[in-house]
Write a protein that binds this DNA or RNA. Structure first.
Lengths: 345, 345
DNA sequence: TATATTCACGAAACCGTTTTCGTTACAACG
DNA sequence: CGTTGTAACGAAAACGGTTTCGTGAATATA
């Protein structure tokens, strides 16, 4: 912090500290003339008020926390852009916390948020997160309930505002699209049984199978993990089994590469031998080989809306309806990985 | 902030505030017995010290700022992971600021850092950033020089620690690889003439041409912008001109997609008709059509090293050698986009 | 025994703002 | 003329920690 503080300003102007403070905040108590003098000198000396002194006194930090499992994912990186966008507009600062998909880290991070460091929290839970006590503790703090908004990866059984996509419907549509393309043995690559969005997507998947009179069997849902090597093996096992599927839906972006790689290695052609859809915001989907049909979420907008919701909750302190639930539609972008074309290469 | 503060603790324990504070910080002044009592109650009441009160008094925020132009770029997202990794280890908090490639935002953000909010700054400059006064102002603040470390996109003419890659050499190597593959008319797609790394890469490119007795002409370096539509048009113009190049080097990841798309649209086959290399950390490079030869930076490690350097500077306050310059090697990963194979598809 | 030292803790200043609550001077008002 | 009101500012108490300095008791030293 620079040596010039409000005290130095006051001394130079021969005013009291309080007067300077009020002048800078354009208080009605201060004459126009004095305000001008104060502001002029403040600008000349490049005065920058200490944010922590202010936070301490006002019990307001103008800072929010963004708690996410990962940043190298096109959904999250786009969502962060949306969040930053409205945060900058609102004059808020953004603390970024990565949980690296670890529940313990998430717990610790949230715990550290309970001391006034942030005015609110935006989060997408870890794939390991099962219980919600660490979250509900924040909300039910008798003295200081801290506003929290889920985006994308929300938790059930807890009364929290959230911004998500229509996971059931979009998964249903993706599945239907595969069925329409001729698939009869579709495998859904699941992220984590703990994730609500994952389960909604599985539900949509199963419902589509049901409505098309296709049986859902054990092997139709495969649980992937956070271990890339394990996932690769699992996918390899599925795609080289006797009962090889003719359609794949990946519930998360990081499963795209292993599917493509395994297909390439095993000589399985997409889409003639197997069709593939992934939930993903990857801007490179159009230039993959073949281009990838995706369920694409409006990530940027989701970030914006979640942040907007949070700021509303912060400002209205308590009066906010906790059950607000914004659902934005994802779009099925059809490309060649589910196309009907034969083997061209 | 929760209602339990250090005062409440002190009252409950029948101790003075100062004693409780010292006990929690494991001061030698406090008896083991008292420390135990204090810590036990603190844990029981879930006491969480107010960070801003502490920051105010200690003039230390335990927070750093990460100022970058963009997050939806695989280099930056990986670098952030590295930064978060060591920040969490060191007990620091990370404020994320996106400049959206806008110089004005960068300036404003840095200005806001000059009030004690952060103990240090990690940054990659905007493609618009020309002068360095907004940066040198931070460093030469008579009273409070705030440590800053560049990573990747550094600025010249200013004495700042930095972590970069061997841009000249890797660009040289990439160019040489294209020449070895038979290219004689290579175009370098430049990010921004303002960026130091970009100019180093161009220099390496030109040097390679020179050493191979190839002339560098005007059209061999094409300036792209931050406008996607403009870039697309420019690339389209280049690839459909009479003097169509037989090799392309893209200086930044975001130019990959337009090159592929234009080639596809114009029916130009990679690599038989044109060969393509991009600077990029894209994990999807192997599954593009064709797989993309890349110059890949050790992004995660760069984030780690930059953060480590910054923390060292923060701790040693002043005694740090400002000219420390860590250069990590990028690697040329050869894939099919520069391969010799003919048209197979 | 007188003095020095160590131990364990309390009192209070301090960090830089914000905000409440005076206080003064002056105008308005009956 | 006494009262009220208002405009413009100052004094001081917060906010919740940290840190310096003091202080009394116990122990060691001469």
């Amino acid at each position: 912090m620079s040596e010039i503080n409000i005290r130095a300003l006051a001394k130079a102007l021969n005013l009291s500290i309080g007067t300077v403070s009020k002048a800078l905040k354009d208080s009605y108590e201060i004459s126009a003339e004095t305000k001008e003098r104060v502001i002029a000198l403040a600008k000349a000396l490049n005065y920058n008020p200490n944010p922590y002194a202010s936070s301490l006194r006002r019990k307001k930090s103008n800072t929010i926390a963004v708690v996410i499992p990962e940043v190298a994912d096109s959904f999250f990186s786009a969502a962060i852009k949306g969040i930053e966008d409205v945060a900058q507009l609102k004059g808020y600062h953004v603390l970024l916390y990565l949980t690296f998909e670890q529940y313990e880290k998430e717990k610790k991070i949230l715990q550290e948020c309970r001391n006034g460091r942030v005015d609110g929290i935006l989060m997408s839970v870890t794939s390991e997160t099962i219980d919600t006590v660490h979250i509900s503790e924040l909300l039910t703090d008798t003295d200081n309930p801290i506003p929290l908004v889920f985006f994308d990866r929300a938790m059930d059984g807890i009364n929290v505002q959230r911004v998500t996509t229509n996971d059931f419907e979009s998964s249903f549509a993706a599945t239907q699209h595969l069925i329409d393309a001729g698939c009869r043995n579709i495998v859904y690559l699941s992220v984590s049984k703990n994730l609500h969005i994952n389960n909604k997507r599985i539900a949509g998947f199963k419902q589509a199978l049901l409505q098309n009179h296709l049986k859902t069997e054990e092997h139709n849902v495969a649980d992937c993990s956070n271990d890339g090597a394990y996932n690769h093996q699992l996918i390899n096992k599925i795609l080289t089994s006797n009962n090889r599927p003719d359609g794949i839906i990946a519930g998360v972006e990081k499963l795209i590469a292993p599917v493509y790689v395994v297909c390439q290695q095993a000589g399985i052609h997409i889409p003639s031998q197997i069709k593939f859809i992934s939930f993903s915001n990857l801007p490179y989907a159009p230039i993959l080989n073949p281009s990838l049909t995706t369920v694409t979420q409006p990530a940027f907008e989701m970030g914006q809306q979640a942040a907007t919701l949070l700021f509303k909750a912060i400002e209205k302190k308590g009066s906010s309806a906790m059950d607000e639930h914004i659902i934005l539609p994802a779009t099925l972008v059809i490309r060649n990985s589910t196309g009907m074309e034969g083997r061209l290469d």
